[in-house]
């Protein structure tokens, strides 16, 4: 549960870890966009090789990426099946009523499968190599222009930062309360749905009460330390682009050109 919530960041010192989070965030979105340009074996093969190069550059074992695919597997297979059965064209290998497996269906299915896997690999790459806090910083920095139209970007970023900061604290508190209620005879995760829902009440209420206590203490502490809202605040942690971020941009340009040449 912990790992899921925290975006599964794996500390490391690879080239990808060191990239500016804004670069990684933008590049990930860009990559996901251009993958839709791929439409034949050549272009998909190139994207596959490129992704594998990036995975290797992160120095993270392939297994972690596979784990990213697993929860999505059924959704992927369902979509692939739809493609396989409903795309018409080319040689027909098998048919039953309005269902048919065709040549185009099979290739399309394979492409969709590939596209899914690559997208998951790349987004997993982003979360594995970037701490949640750095991602929050990146979002704030990229959304900064929206301040001009009155979006409270810095406040939202602080809220996000504090939320991330208190995730471990609340997880810890959850474990403690669960243990205390278990010791009073509560069985979490057993019995029928109704019993399970009932067992959650002695966990949720103390957790709410505790969260309000934290919020109150935190507000007092922030007040005492002179917090008056976003205006006039300076920033301690700033993001800075480095030459490697330019190289990463260049890499994306190369991929785009490659796709344009190779696609049908």
């Amino acid at each position: 549960m912990n790992k899921l919530l925290l975006g599964r960041y794996l500390p490391g010192d690879s080239w990808l870890h060191k990239l500016d989070p804004r670069t990684k965030l933008m590049a990930s979105f860009y990559y996901i966009a251009i993958i839709f340009l791929a439409n034949n074996w050549q272009s998909y093969l190139m994207m596959f090789v490129a992704t594998m190069i990036m995975v290797a550059a992160s120095k993270i074992r392939l297994g972690f990426f596979m784990r990213g695919v697993r929860p999505m597997l059924w959704l992927i297979l369902f979509t692939v099946a739809l493609q396989v059965f409903f795309t018409k064209g080319g040689a027909v290998y098998w048919s039953w009523g309005w269902l048919a497996i065709t040549q185009y269906g099979l290739t399309n299915g394979a492409f969709i499968f590939m596209r899914f896997v690559l997208i998951i690999f790349v987004s997993t790459l982003l979360t594995l190599t970037t701490p949640p806090l750095a991602l929050a910083d990146a979002v704030e920095s990229l959304l900064h222009p929206l301040r001009k139209i009155g979006v409270p970007v810095t406040e939202l970023a602080l809220v996000l930062q504090i939320a991330l900061r208190f995730v471990p604290t609340l997880m810890d508190q959850t474990t403690k309360i669960m243990n205390a209620q278990r010791a009073r005879g509560v069985d979490f995760g057993s019995g029928n749905l109704f019993q399970q829902m009932k067992a959650v009440v002695p966990l949720l209420i103390p957790l709410f009460v505790d969260s309000f206590g934290i919020a109150e203490d935190l507000a007092t502490a922030m007040d005492a330390r002179g917090y008056q809202g976003g205006d006039g605040r300076t920033k301690y942690r700033i993001l800075q682009y480095h030459p490697r971020d330019v190289y990463a941009g260049g890499w994306m340009v190369i991929l785009t050109l490659g796709l344009v040449f190779l696609r049908a």
Partner: peptide
């Protein structure tokens, strides 16, 4: 409950910010 920053240095900087 008074630790605002995500890291030690960030927290020390909070009041300065």
């Amino acid at each position: 409950n008074q630790f605002v920053g995500a890291t030690v240095a960030d927290d020390v900087a909070f009041g300065l910010e």
